[in-house]
Each structure stands twice: as structure tokens, then as C-alpha cells.
Design a binder for these strands. Structure first.
Lengths: 224, 224
DNA sequence: ATGGAAAAGATTTTCGAAAATCGTTGACTC
DNA sequence: GAGTCAACGATTTTCGAAAATCTTTTCCAT
């Protein structure tokens, strides 16, 4: 089984990327079991790197492990959505507050640049080409990362990163839901402007509200 | 290589416990490389479960992975101590606040019980038998876990747990340091009493102060 | 001596198969 | 018919060795 590296330096890293993307793309649905046989076929490699990839994904909350019954995609639930949102409001809110207090001109530049890249893609819609939508997701994540990047606490940053991707699973469920009623771009802009104006509390509040609105928009999905 | 299960249901679980304990006991010092050959001898098993154990430990910050150079014990530093402390004050402070607001009589009982078990062991000293000191560590962890256990947010709880064990590595460095000048038992009691009196803000403040004092006492170790 | 390339050694990473475990099916008893 | 238990099939978990990669040593040319 001759093997080529794609992005990372180990097969386990490639497997991590591949499986994570497959989950994000909906190839595996929440609750689905992840059989090693399938994943080995998907990734075209042996069991060992797949196992390591699943260990990492489990640490980040994408998958869950049941001893001797293997891994499965972490289920989504209304409870967890609310929990993730509340914890995000706490952690990312504080991280943004610290960023505004500590951030230098370099941080401002990073933030403006990330925002610009994000708004260059006009509008997120279901009928967009998948590649472009995926591109927006990446830039959206980069914008949120830039916001908190100057908080000065690597540990808090790591927590924020994990919470973001955990919440992202919910948001990706509904690309079409958030049209019309909400002005997501405006919310983003407002957070950035408050941050650049060095209004730490205001920016943190706006960010928390932004997350609250996002969660509220998603709750409809679970009312079914 | 005939193998027996000790505590968990898989060898990987046993390896996780064994390696974590070996790090806690100081058999491996911060920065030390963790060679698979050594760990396989220590755990008496093949490479696969050891690898999975290290993946979990890395996710929790006990070890770090350098591609193709293997795992090593995560280094300790003054910066990380301060970072962990600040993040803990944020997360555990809020978790305790929520616990006080949400906790029922069952939570009160758990808290009182955990505290009682902890104070039954008179005083933590260097000349104590290792088993008893280890016992106190376990009960100390259980007390802190009980404090936040009613916060209602599984995700926040998980974060608190990880932060606690991450900070615990620093505290274990200095069992002898905290004698005389500080009244650790008093600090614990005060936090509990404020929590039971349903003073959410007061309890959270006392807990944050408790962590601040602990960190301050430890800073001396890195001044060398 | 110094610098760099090539070989040797040490270690991680990966493989493919064997062993262990779990859930299910079907036979047997009460 | 309900309940228990053994045997089977599916799947995870683990093994021991091979392959890949990094580090160190050695050797040669400058």
C-alpha cells in the first residue's frame, strides 16, 4: 500500500484532516458509527494512523469513543448547542476583552485584513459553488481567530479554537437559514469597529450578542 | 506477551493511567523525551496502546508531540503557570458562580462530604507516607470538582477538569513550600461556606483569590 | 581545522495479521 | 412462550515486525 503525504508530515495528520472534513461535509452524520474498515478505505491507509486521528478528533469533541464499540460522530443536541454557546460567550468574550486591552497595531492590521478577506465573498448562499462557500467558512474562522488573537493567553486561545469548531458544526447545518432576518455581516463589522475603537466591554458584549443570535437562529433546527 | 487488565477496559486506558502517574510522580521530568521503548517496558505492552495513551495525554496538555521526533513531557514555565492560573480564575470562577446559583441540596451534600474527606487527613507534609499524601491529592481534586459540579454546563466542567490537572502539575512540585505562611485549609473552608451561604459572587471571588495565592506561592520555584 | 556529503544508528511511524471483545442468532430448557 | 446460554459473525484492540524519518557519526575535500 504505497502512500503519499498530502498536507501534514504524517499519515495520522492526513487522516485527521480527511475525517474531520468528511464529518463537516456531512458524509458522516451525528451519531453514525465510524468503522475502521470504512475509514481505512476512505483514507487509503492502515488502521494505526486512523486510530490516532480518531483519538485527536475525540479530544476536540468531534467524535466519541465507546470502549470496545469504537468511535462514532458526536451527536448534536439542543442542550449542547446552548452549552457551547454559553461557554463560548464566557471564554471568547473574555478573550476579546483582553485582546482589545493588549492588542497592538499589528493586531489591528491582522483584524482588518481578516475582515476584508471575509467580506470579499459577497453572500453565503446554498446555491453557491461548494468551493467558494468552503472558502468563506475558512475566512470566517480566521476573522474570529483574529479577534481574540492578541489576548495574550495561549491556553484561553486554545479553548476558544476548540469551542469555535465545536459550534461550527451546528452553524454548518444551516447555511440557508440565516437569510433576510439577520444582518450577520453587520454584526461582524460592529464587533470589529468596537474592538478597533478600543471599547473592550462593548466589543465583548457585541460578540456575545452575535453568538446568542446565531444560536437562536439555529434552535429552530431542533424544534423538529 | 500475555496481558492483564488493571483498572480500565482497554490496555490503552491502563497505559494512560500509568504514564500520567509516572509523570505526576516525577519519574519523567518536564522536557524529558518519552521513548516508546521505555514506555513499552514500563507498561508491559506493545506500541499501539502506548501511542493511543500519549495521544490522549497530549490532548490534555501533559505531553507534547513533535512530528517524527516523538512525544515528550510538556515543559513547565512561569508563563504557563500564570496563564493557567488566569484561565482557571475565569472558568472555575464562573463555574462556581453557576454552581451556587443552580445547586440543589444534593450538591450541598456532595460538597460537604468531599470537604470532610479532605480535612480528615491532617496536614500535607513532605515527611508523610507517599500513599497518604497521594490520597490527599485525590480528595483535594474531588473537593474542587464538587464545588463546580452543579454548574449545569458539561463543557465548562470538562474545561475546569483539564485546567485543574494542568495546574496540579505545578502544585505537586512543591509539597513542602506552602507551610506556615498560608492557611490553605482556611481558604478551602471559606470558599465552601460562602458557597453554602449562596453568596455566588463572594464564593467565586474567594476561589479566584485562592488560586492567586497558590500561584504566588509557586512562583518562587521559577525565580531560580 | 572547517564544511559538507554520505553512511550508520536510533527512533518514530505504519503495516497487516492475530487476539480479544461485543452483539446477535438460534437452540435448548422450564 | 419466555428465558438462558453457547456458538457465530462483525468489529475493535493489540501485537511484532517492516518502512520511513530524523540524528549522529564518519569521511573526504577545501
Amino acid at each position: 500500500m504505497e502512500q503519499k503525504r498530502t498536507g501534514s508530515r504524517t499519515l495520522a495528520g492526513d487522516a485527521y484532516e480527511a475525517i474531520r472534513q468528511a464529518i463537516g461535509a456531512g458524509d458522516f452524520k451525528p451519531g453514525d458509527r465510524l468503522r475502521f474498515a470504512d475509514l481505512q478505505t476512505l483514507c487509503n491507509m492502515s488502521v494505526t494512523p486512523v486510530r490516532e486521528a480518531l483519538a485527536r478528533l475525540t479530544a476536540e469533541g468531534f467524535t466519541v469513543l465507546d470502549d470496545h464499540r469504537g468511535y462514532s460522530v458526536a451527536p448534536l443536541s439542543l442542550e449542547e448547542l446552548r452549552d457551547v454557546t454559553a461557554t463560548r460567550q464566557l471564554c471568547e468574550g473574555e478573550a476579546l476583552r483582553l485582546s482589545v486591552l493588549n492588542g497592538d497595531a499589528d493586531w489591528e492590521a491582522r483584524l482588518i485584513a481578516a475582515h476584508h478577506l471575509m467580506v470579499r465573498i459577497p453572500q453565503v448562499r446554498d446555491d453557491m459553488p461548494t468551493a467558494m462557500r468552503e472558502d468563506w467558512e475558512v475566512r470566517h474562522a480566521a476573522f474570529h481567530a483574529a479577534l481574540v488573537s492578541a489576548c495574550g493567553s495561549p491556553i484561553l486561545l486554545e479553548i476558544c479554537e476548540k469551542l469555535f469548531s465545536r459550534a461550527d458544526r451546528y452553524r454548518r447545518l444551516s447555511v440557508s437559514l440565516d437569510d433576510g432576518a439577520r444582518d450577520v455581516a453587520g454584526e461582524h463589522r460592529r464587533v470589529m469597529e468596537l474592538a478597533l475603537a478600543r471599547d473592550a466591554e462593548g466589543a465583548a458584549s457585541a460578540l456575545r450578542e452575535h453568538y446568542g443570535l446565531t444560536a437562536a437562529a439555529l434552535e429552530g433546527f431542533f424544534a423538529v
